[in-house]
C-alpha cells in the first residue's frame, strides 16, 4: 500500500513546480514586442501565457492546501530568492532566439511526459492541472522542436547559433532529473512521477530532434545544480527585482 504524502510535501512540490512555470513564463514574456517575426511574437507570448496560467493554478492549489491564507500572488511576489526552487535552466537569460527556443525545447521535452505522468496523480487537483497543462506543453514541444530543426539545419549562422546555445545550456538539463527526498515521497504516494524516470523519454526526444537538426548532444562535464535548494545564478535576483517591483515598492496594496 502506497504511503500518503504529507500536505507540507505536496505544498512544497506544487510551489516548486509553480516556480518553474512562472520563471520561464516571465522570461518568455520579455520577448513581447521584440521577436524575429510577428507570428513568433504571438507564439512566444502564447507559451508565456500558458506557463503563467499553470503557475497560477499551482500556487493557488498550494495556498489552499497549506490553509494559511496565502494566495497566488503571495507565492509569486512575496518570497525571497532563496525560497524559489525553480530549475536553473528556466531562469537563464533569453539570449538570442536560438537560446530561447532551445531552453523551451529542453523544458517542454521534460514537462510533456512529466504532465502526462501527473495527469493520473493521486491528488485530484494536481491531476486536473496536469491534464490541461499536458495539452499546452505538447504544443510548446512541437513548436520549439520545429524551430530547433529549422535553425540547426538552416543557414551556417543559424546552425552555429544553435550549437552555441547547446554548449551554453546543456549543463543545466541534468537538474531536471534529480531525485531528492521530496520527489521520492511524492512518487511513492502516486502524486507525481520520479523525475529520473522521465530521462529516457527526454533523451529520445532530444536525440530525434538533434539528429534532424544536425546537432550533437554534448557530454556534460559539470552539471549545474542548485535551483531546487534555492541556490540560483546571478540572473535570478534581477529577474525577481523586476517581477516583484510593485509589490515591494508599494507593500500590501490591491492592484
Amino acid at each position: 500500500m502506497a504511503q500518503e504524502a504529507s500536505t507540507t510535501s505536496i505544498v512544497t512540490f506544487l510551489t516548486r513546480l509553480g516556480d518553474d512555470q512562472l520563471v520561464l513564463g516571465h522570461r518568455l514574456s520579455e520577448w513581447c514586442g521584440h521577436a524575429p517575426t510577428l507570428e513568433e511574437d504571438l507564439a512566444l507570448a502564447n507559451m508565456g501565457l500558458d506557463l503563467i496560467g499553470q503557475a497560477r493554478a499551482l500556487y493557488t492549489r498550494a495556498g489552499e492546501l497549506e490553509g494559511e491564507g496565502r494566495g497566488e500572488d503571495d507565492f509569486a511576489y512575496l518570497r525571497r530568492e532563496v525560497d524559489y526552487q525553480n530549475l536553473l535552466l528556466v531562469e537563464r537569460p533569453n539570449g538570442d532566439f536560438a537560446r530561447t527556443i532551445l531552453k523551451q525545447f529542453y523544458f517542454a521535452a521534460f514537462m510533456t511526459p512529466f504532465w502526462q505522468g501527473t495527469s493520473n496523480s493521486s491528488d485530484e487537483a494536481l491531476a486536473a492541472i496536469a491534464a490541461k497543462a499536458v495539452k499546452e506543453s505538447t504544443y510548446h514541444l512541437r513548436h520549439s522542436a520545429e524551430w530547433v530543426i529549422r535553425l540547426g539545419d538552416g543557414t551556417a549562422e543559424s546552425a552555429n547559433r544553435m550549437k552555441c546555445a547547446v554548449d551554453d545550456l546543456h549543463a543545466y538539463t541534468d537538474e531536471m532529473f534529480q531525485s531528492d527526498a521530496l520527489t521520492k515521497e511524492l512518487a511513492g504516494a502516486g502524486v507525481a512521477p520520479e523525475p529520473a524516470t522521465i530521462k529516457v523519454q527526454w533523451q529520445a526526444s532530444v536525440t530525434e530532434i538533434f539528429d534532424a537538426a544536425n546537432l550533437a548532444i554534448p557530454e556534460i562535464a559539470w552539471p549545474q545544480l542548485g535551483g531546487r535548494q534555492g541556490e540560483h545564478t546571478e540572473d535570478m535576483g534581477h529577474l525577481l527585482a523586476e517581477l516583484q517591483f510593485m509589490q515591494r515598492a508599494y507593500p500590501g496594496l490591491q492592484w
Binding site: 513581447c32 501565457l49 509569486a76 511576489y77 517581477l243
Partner: peptide, 21 residues
C-alpha cells in the same frame, strides 16, 4: 509586462499586448 503588480494583471497585460500583435 515584467513588472505587472499581480499575476492576474501580468497575464491580462501579456494577453492584451499579444492581441495588439
Amino acid at each position: 509586462i515584467s513588472r505587472a503588480p499581480t499575476l492576474r494583471r501580468k497575464a491580462a497585460l501579456l494577453a492584451k499586448v499579444q492581441d495588439e500583435g
